[in-house]
Design a protein around this nucleic acid. Structure first.
Lengths: 242, 242
DNA sequence: TTGACTTATATGTCTAGACATATAATCGTG
DNA sequence: CACGATTATATGTCTAGACATATAAGTCAA
């Protein structure tokens, strides 16, 4: 055993190996495309078993920092695309996290057989029932966002009887319905009369729009459009890359 | 040695174990907070060694689907926050991927000692040199985005001599400078005179704004503001969760 | 030159153990 | 009952092997 570089291993060995390699990649010492030492070389360098270096390299591969190719070796991945993790919290959580008082108001709720427009929006072909909800979220009594949502009752039957007059549909869905995939589209618009009125902003003021579609295994659950005052709301996405 | 459920293991064993557990979580059979069987129970169920189930569980933990607690067991994580992966590609790649002709035009480039405003924007305290660049990206001759960028020369000395009259600074940086972290802020504004003119849109039209700050190990590299016509540009974020 | 076959090799997966360590649960004591 | 000490236990890490498998590289014949 006798480690080549044992230097008081506070963290565990495989973590040190992983950190060592990560550092060289992130500093640019090992640029994209560079071949990382073979497992047997790292085994010799760190004086450990192959399973240990394998664990370190596997985690780096899972994090997309390196690419492993049989017989060829492991290589530093090139910064494929700048991808960012956008945290889109439940609105209530978002507001309370800011230390502001959360307010919620149900504006409208309709249970109806899906219209052509509804089916188009949800991306379903079968005719079925849907719940359409419009509501307003506020922070310290100031309008924060307008939510316009459609829920497919074929996927979420419980939504027909859920009480959305007190609990926002977003929170209810997040806690009652498991989802597997979703898609956001972010765009900007200017407020028309109705929007301006609902958000208590001027007509022609900028608004940030988030359209979100949520599925559970290829089955649409809900489609929602969130409207935020564009000058006061910001989406923040932090990310890491190589 | 004699699998309890061996059923023609096309994928490898640990992958099947991982997929089995993942499925139960995603279908809601094991809701957030549910305790996953102990490793020794899974060892008995699948008739394999502990390292194999450990690998499956470790990957699920790395993917944030479960949480592991010593002595207590492994638990399904509650859907903490809806986090989305926002792919923000290099603009040139984004446009060519749409099958449109990419156009680039350098509007202004200045090398100067950082002003107070520059230092504030880059988040640096020391006085140093910066490069300020303004340029326009277009798709099929139509203005697509206006880029307003500041590069810290202390972090990226090569940027002083790089030729940004032909290559967009975003592409150049992505291919020449490794980065470790970045932050995006997305908001909406309405076009003022200068913006409207540069994007060939009407004054008062909505614009999507992306402010991006990029660092390499706590050191600011660049700050950029991208302005898109809000009605024609959309940011798409797909994501998966539990 | 090209295509088909062979070989060497790096990674992929797995085993049957081991000791370390954090911590939930229990037990004892003031 | 409250609180500190003890114990049991599940995960965390690691080893020294093994065989599987994809594939880069080399070999040879058409």
């Amino acid at each position: 055993m006798s480690l080549a570089t044992d230097a008081a291993d506070k963290p565990t060995l495989y973590k040190r190996i992983r950190a060592d390699i990560e550092k060289r990649i992130l500093t640019g010492e090992w640029p994209p495309g560079h071949r990382i030492p073979f497992e047997h070389e790292l085994v010799a360098r760190y004086g450990c078993s192959r399973m240990t270096v394998n664990k370190a390299l596997s985690e780096l591969a899972q994090a997309d920092l390196i690419e492993r190719r049989r017989r060829a070796g492991s290589f530093v991945r090139r910064p494929q695309h700048m991808s960012a993790v956008l945290k889109i919290a439940d609105i209530r959580a978002e507001i309370t996290a800011l230390g502001r008082a959360y307010g919620y108001e149900l504006i409208g709720r309709k249970l109806r057989t899906a219209t052509t427009a509804d089916r188009d929006r949800l991306g379903v072909r079968k005719v079925g029932k849907v719940v359409a909800i419009t509501c307003r979220h506020s922070a310290d009594k100031v309008p924060f966002a307008i939510e316009d949502r459609l829920i497919d009752l074929a996927s979420v039957p419980d939504a027909a009887t859920a009480d959305f007059s007190r609990e926002p549909p977003g929170s209810w869905l997040l806690h009652h319905v498991p989802w597997t995939e979703a898609e956001h589209t972010i765009s900007a618009i200017v407020a028309d009369d109705r929007t301006a009125d609902a958000l208590a902003i001027a007509v022609g003021a900028p608004c940030l729009v988030i359209d979100r579609y949520t599925w559970r295994s290829a089955r649409t659950i809900t489609a929602v459009r969130l409207l935020y005052p564009g000058d006061s709301h910001r989406l923040v996405a932090r990310f890491k890359g190589g």
